[in-house]
Design a protein around this nucleic acid. Structure first.
Lengths: 219, 219
DNA sequence: ATCATTAACATAACAGCGTCAACAAAAGTC
DNA sequence: GACTTTTGTTGACGCTGTTATGTTAATGAT
């Protein structure tokens, strides 16, 4: 069997290198022409078909990029809670960091969520799934710790509660990034109000269903 | 000037007809190949370039479809508040209807928001902007009426408050539609908890900024 | 050192896309 | 009927993702 040596390491290294370039291109021209496989290759000084040696698909490359973006926002959240001891403060700072980071890097944030046609393929990436869960865990752990210390009520499980925060933060960021806010809305007031509402909602968590159920829910 | 007559009416009529077919195709195969202009034309029995007589762009067609989707969800919300007199009930029913409708028609909902590369163009469509505002107004008016009756506090303006609800509902629906929820999360509990949290947050609206501002905010 | 094998890369080609220009037909006005 | 405008078809361009085929270089075995 000729030519095995360190090829696995070299391959992974080159993969990272391609991903670096891809992320750079994506952040610069971000989404306008949405990262062409061919352009990316030529930008790297390679032929247009070269990246196929490292990624079976364009989707696989995009998913790897997506996972990177999740790792990045996870790091942002982790950085926001260092030095804070109160769970309430941690939760607020974490949510604020998520929102701030997403707003500051709209293309990267959009990469994480906006992709109608690639969802089926994205669902199959375990690398992406792990990155997502790890990012959310930052919030989940803060809530669990807060419950253990008696700061938060126990009648909601931490994973569900962290989803609640994710919903709020994601809703705000994605609407803002997509430029959906209606003129006349006081956006500056939105962030603190939302965070306050979520924390208040968590602390007065009412887990008894109060929503009218005309239809069966989809889950 | 030969041939002016009712051509304007006929044009609009044909436009609607094309949009009908486009919406049908989009809902059926939804996004997988994301609505090809050529396919749509041939599906209509026309040549691949025919729709260019009625839409200057693919973007214009997609934006018209988007506006339709907003009109649809507006109707769903309006239908959810008829017969209810209490503003709190109206608000809950409205939010629940929004969430339920979005979940029941993921492709249509995705069409409303998920489109990274078309955002710039979407921003320029006044038809879409009007549809969006009208949809949000359902919520804004309920809140304003509730404030007038003394059910809701006055220290937040109705438009901002309705955005808060929109943020929560959109965050929930879009994450669910995109299949982003982490395994183990109790989705069924999420809807009533979120709605409760938002209403609680609105009623105890704390408009004084409590969020750490390491960076200047973007808006 | 030579040869075979295999990886990396380049090139060509295919089908599909959005878009526009050029052209045929039809339908209205005069 | 002649003229003009609208509607529709066809061909073409440049782009895309992807695959197949060919080329080059490096390695292991001999």
């Amino acid at each position: 069997m000729p030519r095995p040596k360190f090829s696995d390491d070299l391959r992974a290294q080159k993969r990272e290198q391609i991903l670096d370039a891809a992320m750079a291109v994506f952040e610069k021209e971000g989404g306008e022409e949405a990262l062409s496989f061919r352009r990316l290759a030529t930008e790297l000084g390679l032929s247009y078909s070269a990246p196929y040696r490292y990624f079976v698909d364009k989707q696989e490359l995009v998913n790897a990029l997506r996972a990177r973006a999740f790792r990045w926002i996870e790091a942002e959240m982790r950085g926001a809670i260092v030095g804070l001891s109160e769970p309430e403060k941690q939760l607020e700072s974490l949510a604020a960091a998520y929102i701030r980071s997403g707003m500051a890097h709209p293309h990267r944030y959009a990469l994480m969520f906006f992709a109608l046609d690639q969802l089926e393929v994205a669902r199959r990436s375990i690398e992406l799934k792990a990155a997502k869960r790890d990012a959310l865990d930052v919030c989940t752990q803060v809530i669990a710790a807060g419950q253990a210390r008696g700061n938060f009520p126990l009648d909601i499980d931490p994973l569900t509660a962290s989803h609640l925060f994710w919903i709020g933060a994601h809703g705000l960021v994605s609407l803002q990034v997509a430029g959906q806010f209606v003129m006349g809305c006081d956006v500056k007031m939105l962030v603190p109000t939302l965070i306050h509402a979520l924390r208040t909602g968590l602390e007065h968590a009412d887990t008894s269903a109060k929503v009218p159920s005309k239809e069966k829910r989809h889950g």
